[in-house]
Amino acid sequence: MKRARILPPLALASASLSACAGPLSTLDPAGPSADAVANLWWVMFWASVLLFLLVGGLWALVWLRPGFGRSLAPMRWVVLGGLVMPGVLLTLLVGFALYIGERLLPHALADPPPRVSAHGIMWQWQFSYPDIAGAATTPTLHIPAGAPVDIVVTSGDVVHSFWVPRLAGKIDAIPGHRNVIRIQADRPGTYEGVCAEFCGDGHTTMRFRVEAHAPQDYRQAVLEAAP
């Protein structure tokens, strides 16, 4: 697992939760973006477990050992537990999360990644390939593996949301707006995507498939793809 080289102890724990794998699982990342978020999750998860045990433990102690906390002045409790502890932890966390978020943005690159358009309408996705002359619109999203791709997400009617959990977070398709999300699949394969924003009666079935192709096969695959 890729995570293992970044945060070994967390990977161990996540491996024990092998039930977390699945075609739509954010905990089974298949690209750098989803991977970064999964790491963030495991950091927050274990920190939360510790904090919960701390607060739960204090709650138990005040009942089971009355008077144990008297050595600490009342306002000390409030300042240490209510201000200092969350203040320090949240500063670290916000900084870490913004750093990760900044890296996931579709920054302008010297070598611009290929663009694919994802257009949501009630209730299907239409993918088109402005970079590839002669490519038809497809119901399956084709991307090259191993490199970033910018997906330009638009809507023809109501708000939809483009989400391929194993590759990256989601971005909304909002009528009249044009949003870009950068995704990357590390290796060729098939990934599942859903519409994440409620969009009416067909919301449930507005799913789609992503096929990541080896870079050398990509162009041909798009041209041959079924419309």
């Binding site: 005040v62 008077g67 008297r70 409790w77 209510g82 949240l90």
Partner: peptide
């Protein structure tokens, strides 16, 4: 994230009330 701090202040004020 900051909104957690005033919430924590209350939680610890309650805990301190019980502890003391």
């Amino acid at each position: 994230a900051l909104v957690a701090i005033p919430t924590a202040v209350q939680i610890f004020a309650w805990l301190a009330t019980l502890a003391h």
